[in-house]
């Protein structure tokens, strides 16, 4: 978490510096802040924390995009509750089924969201839940198949009001 925060700060500083060199003067801080979330989503495609989390889930195996479908609203007004559905294209037979589904995020204080274990008894690989998002960011769903392969799907969610940041009343 600390590492991630330092990294974010560094990026923010870089952006502010570049904005400063372009515009200069009093406009800088306002302009810089407004562009931060958009710029970060584009610049930090895979921050270290999420990459590490994916490594811990998949180990040495390669994670291939495909087979998984992650359903998320492209824009969320309230980061405190974002519904998500993960479905995986699998026959769900004892020989070929989804063993686990993991969801990780890029910029939440912790990358993990949920880890689910299922099996052929599920009939189909389809789960839904609701998550918190602290900022506009990338969400990745990873499916572990019974043959040991890993598949993923990635979605970007724009969050207007992030979770975790509100003041307690």
């Amino acid at each position: 978490m600390t590492d991630k925060r330092t990294e974010n700060l560094a990026t923010r500083r870089d952006i502010l510096a570049s904005a400063g060199s372009l515009v200069g003067g009093g406009l800088v801080s306002g302009l810089g802040l407004a562009t931060i979330s958009v710029a970060q989503a584009q610049v930090q495609s895979t921050p270290a924390a999420m990459a590490l989390a994916i490594r811990k889930i998949a180990g040495e195996a390669t994670v291939t995009p495909g087979k998984v479908k992650l359903d998320l609203p492209p824009l969320s007004e309230n980061g405190n509750s974002v519904s998500l559905t993960v479905s995986v294209d699998s026959p769900m037979t004892p020989a070929n089924h989804v063993k686990a589904i993991h969801v990780v995020t890029e910029k939440n204080p912790q990358p993990y969201v949920i880890s689910v274990r299922l099996g052929p008894r599920a009939g189909q690989a389809n789960i839904s839940t609701r998550m918190r998002l602290s900022d506009t960011q990338i969400v990745v769903a990873i499916a572990e198949m019974s043959d040991g392969s890993f598949w993923s799907d990635t979605r970007t969610v724009i969050v207007t009001l992030g979770a975790c940041l509100e003041d307690l009343i």
Partner: peptide, 18 residues
């Protein structure tokens, strides 16, 4: 038949469908 590990990123009043 189903098991899930939840983390702080799950909303208050956790909803799970499977």
């Amino acid at each position: 038949i189903f098991q899930a590990d939840l983390y702080p990123a799950i909303t208050a009043n956790p909803f799970i469908a499977f």
